[in-house]
Amino acid sequence: MKRGFLVAAGAAVTLLAGPRARAQGVGEACAASYEQAQQLVRDRALLRARAELRLCASSCPATLARDCRSWSERVERDMPSVALSATSAEGHAPGRVRVLLDGAPLVEAIPNAAIEVDPGRHTLTFEDMAGTRVVAVVTVSPGDKALPIAVRFPAAGPPSAAAPVRQRWPLAIAGAGAVALGVGAFLGIKGHLDRSELRGRCAPTCRADEVEAIDLTWKAGAISAGAGLLAAGAGAMLYFQLDPAAPAATGAGLSFSPGGPWLSMIGSF
């Protein structure tokens, strides 16, 4: 009933406000605040309406100022407020909690006093120092005073240490494979250089032990490279299986031929 009377009175005054203000020869600030305040009341934007009514009361002639003071009293009666509170999952004070009203900052810390808000449906977002958020959707009616709005933050989950460990050991396998692959490449190249040097020095009458040493170097390189390639491939495969979101990577492979070692690149994108 009270709200209906206020809206009806505002609508009636709006029709008369312009002519009445012009008839009294008031300034633009007075006329604007006199009319804007009534529109804001009809829109239930009471916080802004109060500011306009204060301007009207201080800048308008006595007759109009009396109207604004009367409307201001009604706005104060209808102005709702909310009493905010928050607790941790264990029921303790969660420390400093900032609150957003409909996405805009409201307070940086919950105060002890109630906070005035416009009537209507609002979304209140509570955020603690750890960044955890709790959202409350409430409807505040005109005349509600210190409407209690209490939230409880959820319990913090245990730290997810398994995921990093799970991701590290496949990388360790792939890293060891890369090292073995590098050793294989080095031995293969060394064997190739030693064979070239031996050919130039004593072929075809080189000693058997010198030829055998080069052959052993190549075999060791091939074994190391093969093991490294398998380890690098296995590590990469395990990593991508454990983390499907990880991007595909390029791999390296080493192959041997009678003409010497060859390094090739394989991968998917």
Rank of each mutant, 00 (worst) to 15 (best):
S70V: 02
S58I: 08
A89R: 02
G177W: 10
L238P: 00
A231S: 09
R77L: 14
T250H: 08
R66L: 06
V179P: 00
L16E: 12
S224V: 01
P170G: 12
R121V: 03
S257L: 04
F240R: 13
A231C: 05
E35C: 06
G182S: 13
A185T: 14
L187R: 14
L64F: 02
A9L: 14
G103S: 02
V7C: 00
P244D: 00
P170K: 02
K145T: 13
F269Q: 08
A49K: 01
R96E: 10
W262T: 13
A220L: 15
R20S: 11
A248L: 14
K219N: 14
A9H: 02
M237Q: 14
G177V: 09
L106V: 01
G27S: 07
L187F: 11
E90F: 04
F256C: 01
P244V: 04
V75E: 13
P80L: 10
T250D: 08
V117C: 07
Q167K: 08
V179K: 08
E52H: 14
P258N: 03
M265I: 15
A109F: 00
T125K: 10
Q39F: 09
R69L: 15
R20F: 11
A176L: 15
D67E: 11
W169P: 04
I173H: 01
A225N: 12
P159M: 09
V75H: 10
V99K: 07
V211G: 12
A203W: 14
S255L: 10
L181A: 03
D144A: 12
G251S: 15
R121S: 11
W169G: 01
F256I: 03
R20N: 11
I149V: 15
P154Y: 01
V99F: 03
M129N: 04
A93C: 00
A146N: 09
G260D: 08
A21N: 11
G200Y: 06
L254C: 07
G175M: 08
K219M: 14
L254M: 04
H122A: 09
V7W: 04
M265Q: 12
E28H: 02
A213H: 08
R166V: 05
S264K: 15
V26Y: 05
S70C: 01
R96V: 12
M79F: 08
